[in-house]
Each structure stands twice: as C-alpha cells, then as structure tokens.
Design a protein around this nucleic acid. Structure first.
Lengths: 204, 204, 204, 204
DNA sequence: GATGAATGAGACTTCATTCAT
DNA sequence: GATGAATGAAGTCTCATTCAT
C-alpha cells in the first residue's frame, strides 16, 4: 500500500502536496493571503480541504512555505544574474527579473513589502526575509562598481530594491505595459548617482 | 434651541464621527483594513457599532474616507514642501515627510502600494490614487532641476516615490531607527544620477 | 410659534401624521410590513424617523392603524355596493371593487389572508378582522338571493371572498390584466351553484 | 469502508440535511420565511448554524428547496386524487387534501399566495409556481365534467383553488375545526355553478 | 411637536479548523 | 493518505427604538 515497488521513478512526495503548492502559488500570487480561502485553493488543486491540513497543518504554514518557495525562486534567478561579468548589466538584468516576477505574481511584492510588520501570526517559522536576501545580493554587485562606506550599503540597496519593486508593481497594475527600458533606466539612476558621487572600483 | 450666548455655535457637531475617524486612522494606520474589525474601531472610539453604520454607511466607505483623509494629509505636506526655493532641498524635505508619515502610519504605505490592484471592493468611489497625486508633485520639482523627456518623467518620479516609500517602510518596521540622513541620501542618489546624465535647468 | 391664529382653516391634525399615513399606505400596500422599514416610510413622508414614534408610538401601532384604515376603505365601498337593488349586481360590483383594490394595494390581500395567524406581535389592539367584516356583508347579500341554512352561510361567504381575493391577487401579480369579466364570472359561479342547489328567495 | 453485511448501504447519508429539512418544514410551515431565523432552524434540527450553509449555501436556497419539497408533496397527492374515476369525487378529494395540508403547514398557503409578487430575493432559481401546477391539474379534472371555453378554464381553476386555499387557511387559523363537509360543499358550489351553466361532458 | 444622533439586539454569512471514517 | 461533513468564532450589516435637545 505504501510503496509500490519500481513504479513511478520520481520521488513524488505526495502529488497532492504538489498540486496544492501550484494552486497556492497561482492564487496567492494573484490575490494575496487574506483574499484566498482554503476552500478555493483545495478546489483548484482538485483535492479536498482536509488534505490541506493533512499536508501542511494549517493555512498559515502552507502560505509560509509557498511564500518561501516564491522567494527562493526569485532569489535564485537574481543570484544567477548577479554573476554577470559586467556589474551594471547584472543590476539591469536583476531589475528585469524582478519586474517580470512581479508581473506574474503581483501580490508577492505587496507581501514582501509588508512582511516585516505584523509579527503576530507570522507564516510558519521565522525565515530570512526576502528583503534581506535580495539586498545582500545587490550589495555584492554594487561593491563591484563603487567604493561605498559600510553603513551606506544597506540603505542604497534598499532604495534600489524599493524603486524596482514599486515600479514593477505599478507596471503590473496598469494594463499598459510601459516601455520596460524606461523603467529600468529610471531605477538605475540610483547607480548613476552613486557613480557620480563615489569613487569607482578599479580592476586591478 | 436655547442658544448658548456668545459661545462657539456648537463645534461638537457629532463628535462621534470625529472619534471614529481618529480610531480608524490609528488602527488602520497600524494594521491595515482587513486586520481591523468594525467592533474594534467602535470600541476604541467609545461608541456603539451601530454608530459606525449611522455615520459612514459601511466599513468600506469609512475606510475610504479615512484613507482619503490620510492621503490628503500627506499630499498637503508634500505640496507645501515642494515650493521650497531650492529644488533639491524640496525633494529632501519631501522624503523626510514621507518617512515620518510612514513611521506614524506604517500600513498606509502598504495600502497605497496595493491600491491599484484589486478593483473589487474599492473603498467608496474612485478617487485619484495617492501615487498619482504624489508623482505629479515630484515631477514639478524635478522639472526645476533637470531637463527631462516627457516620457521619462513619470518613471523617474515613480522610482523616487518607491525608493522613499520602501525605505521608510523598512525603517518603520525595524526597531532601530537608522540614521535618517543616510536613507535620504540613498533615495536622492536618483536625483544625482539624473543630474549626472541630463542637462541641468539653467535659471534663465 | 405653535398655533398661528386663523390661518389654515382645516383641523389639520398634525400634518406629519397625515403624510406618514399616506407614505405607509403606499409602501405597505406595495410591499408588506416586513419589507418596509421605518426609515423608508419616514423618508418618503418627508419627516424624521423620530416623528413616527412621536405620532404612533411604534412601528406595529402605525401599521395597525394603516391596515385598519385600508380595511375601512374597502369595507365602506363594499357596503355601499351591497345596497344595490339587484343582489347579483351587488355581488358582481363588490367583486369588481375587491379586484381593483387588490390591484392598487397588492400586499393588503396577503396581509388579510394571514391576519388570523401569528397572534404574537399583532398590530396594535385587536380589531375585527377584515375577513369577518367582509363576509358579514356578503352574507347579507346572499340572503337576498337564496335560502341558506345558518351554518352554511359563513363557509359560502368565505369561499366567495377567497375566490375573489385570490383571483384578484393573481391578476395583480401577472402583468397581463386578463379580462376582468371572465374573472368575475368564474368567481360568481359560486352563486350560480348556490342557485342551482337551493331555493331562491321570493320577493314578497 | 467496512461494509456492514447485508444491511441498508448507508441510508444515513448525512442525516443533518434531513433534520434541517424537517425543522425547516415545521418552522416555515408554521411561521413563514422571515419570521424564522437560521439560528432557530439549526437549533431545532440539533446541528450548528454552519451546517445550514454547508448543506444549502444560504437561507434563501434552503427555503427554496423546502418550499419546492412542500409543493411537490401537495401536488403529488393532488395528482393522484385527480385520477379518481368520478371527476366530482376527484375534486372533492383534492379539496380535502388541500385543507389537510394547509392545516398542517398553515403558512405554506400564504407563501404560495404571495409567490408571484416580490421578484426580489426569490428563493433559489425560478421554479414553476405551485399555483400553475395545481390549476393545470384542476383543469384536467374539470375538462372531464363540463365543456369549457379555453379562456374560461384558467380563471375557473384559479377561483376554485383560491376558494379552497382561503377556506382552508381560515379553518386552520380558527381553533374550531368546523365541519369539513360544509367547507367542501361551499367550495364545490363553483362546480355546481359550472354544471348549471355549461354543457356537461358526455361519456363518449 | 419634532428631530436625528445613537444604540444594541439579532440577522445572515464566511471560513479556518477538527475528526470519524 | 485522504476525505468531507460538521463546527463555532467572528465578521458585516439592518433596523426598531430611545432620548436629549
């Protein structure tokens, strides 16, 4: 009953769990936690409501995992882009990735923006906030461009992330997909300003 | 009926409405609309639940008015700051105002960020989004600094607003009130980048 | 302030009361007691809600008076028609009156039909039910047509009233104002049946 | 899962639904829809309030189903009686059935009488009104008694139904259960009148 | 006479969660 | 592993009624 020998080669955790994950990602990404009910997720996943509790224990825990998964997805892409040879290209690509991600899962931006607040009923255990993971990657790239005082790094990365996230969110909301290039340039003015006021890193 | 001589002609119009407004501003500013119940607002205002409906008609309408009031508050301050003689000072002051506002009413930032999305259950009638009102003010100031192509203005203002809002939100969330100056500088790097890449406005 | 001397010659009870009466008659006649709120009646009457309680004491008392007024209106017309020389003409005219009344105030029929039930929260004091008042008039007319046993009179009058009321109600509901004559004839088949099975009254 | 051998294969499908149905039938039959609260129905059924919504979706939907069930119950009995060999016996039996039904569920008569009006908040989907279903059965029987013009049939059946319903309602209301025979005779005077004024159907 | 702000009981409904099967 | 019937707390809203002015 438990393990049918040599049948499906995949690990295939539960199958139900995967489908719930997919449905949650879709629904939460589009409408946010409060606007989605367990009923709805279960229905779209094609499983019963009890299965949610069997697999995840609670709605909050499931949301927590989905959120973490989404964050991992974004961060993984950003990390990869951050390794591009030309740091400015890296930042531009990273911004592009963020914009596309927010367009696909609009409410994630909103969740990440508010994840610091409301410590009550946090989703599952404490995990490293997306903001921290992203800014640390941004800082790595910036360090390859300009020489920055230690206490300046975090705020600059934050401003960069905020500008990108907000612009992306707005673009996702307005149906007219404005020129993505213009948005990218606007965000990257922060880098230009940095370069204009700080000593560039010399390849030596 | 019996006119109280030479006193204020009944300032205390209803008082209940004002108290509900104050309570809403406080609660909504701290926790966001759907984390606050009508019961709670009424209780903190010291009135009965029915009074909410007598004065506002519905929870959504009340939230709409509170949100609009908050927006008016912020925009009024920003508009005033935007008239400062030195445009860069204006922008710096505006950012300071935003940071302080968000610190006082943390969830407003979050609401404004998501106000474009979810057209369902809009709070009251359609009002000009805060984002639009703020960016238009920002654009006015920027126009006094650099010469900008028409299609560049909006994205730049958006990036500026996003950077400020996000930085402010994060500062409000983290209990350590980091150096406000550093945050301001980071946000204003956008302006520096603008100046470094565009022709400055000459005073005639 | 109170009574301007020799101005309006009418008794003019309160004026507010009359307007409330008119509004109630209109609204209750169209939608029934439960579907009409005190707010609505007061608004249509153009007075404040408190005025209802000042003039009538409670919603139920007001409804009671309006219902009684409506009943008086109908009964007065029926009584007048019942005096027609030819008893069959009298019954036909009475049915016509009922049909017209129900068309104008559709929900009155419904109220009268259910007025016996639900002794709790009766509207005001106990008043003679419309049914009793109408059937006694019908009986008077029938007595001029056929000789009927005492214990037969009430049920026959009831059947007559029920047939007329129900037919009228249905006609008022269906937008197609069917031939009123056909309806009248159908109702009066009861009289025909009576005549066919009982000894007619001889004029002497 | 463990099949109980040779027993009924789980008649007790949910049980809750049936108990809610019974409680609704009882309460609605006695007091009408808006005089009965969901709390009360759930309490009498011995289930929680949420169970109502789990099983029926809304109060209106439940009422709709109960009403339809009641209608089906009555119509089924009437249809069966209508097949009696002697048409006049059929009508008399049908009237008896109606009287008994109304005595058991007094407010159903009232609901059916007002079902045409107030298209707002209709109970569930549009279903054929009881009135239509009953009159069509009545017409079938009448057609076996007298030759009637097409446009006369409906009004006559309506009058018959109205007379029976109203008489039954009144009998149910007044605590003295008057002689049912007398009531039946009174209602059937319509048939007598029909016979007295129209050509009877000849058996082939 | 009349008002309208305020109330509070009670109505309908949603939804995360539990549990026997 | 999974189900779905059942729950109950909590939420939004309505409305008849009261009362100070």
């Amino acid at each position: 009953m438990t393990a049918s020998p040599n049948s499906r080669p995949r690990t295939r955790v539960t199958d139900s769990k995967e489908r719930l994950f997919a449905a949650s990602m879709q629904l939460l990404g589009a409408r946010g936690p409060n606007a989605v009910s367990v009923d709805e997720i279960a229905q779209i996943a094609g499983v019963s409501k009890g299965t949610v509790y069997y697999n995840f224990g609670s709605k909050d825990k499931m949301i927590g995992q989905v959120l973490e998964f989404g964050a991992d997805m974004l961060v993984a892409q950003l990390d990869e882009a951050s390794t591009l040879a030309e740091p400015r290209d890296a930042l531009r690509t990273m911004a592009t990735i963020a914009i596309d991600f927010v367009e696909k899962y609009p409410s994630f931006a909103q969740i990440w923006i508010s994840e610091q607040l409301s410590p009550e009923s946090d989703w599952g255990e404490q995990i490293t906030p997306v903001y921290t993971r992203v800014t640390s990657t941004i800082i790595e790239v910036i360090d390859r461009i300009v020489v920055l005082g230690q206490e300046e790094k975090e705020p600059v990365a934050t401003a960069l992330f905020g500008a990108a996230l907000f612009s992306a969110r707005l673009r996702a909301a307005s149906m007219n997909p404005e020129d993505r290039e213009t948005i990218l340039n606007s965000v990257l003015f922060i880098v230009d300003g940095l370069l204009a006021t700080h000593e560039p890193v010399t390849d030596h």
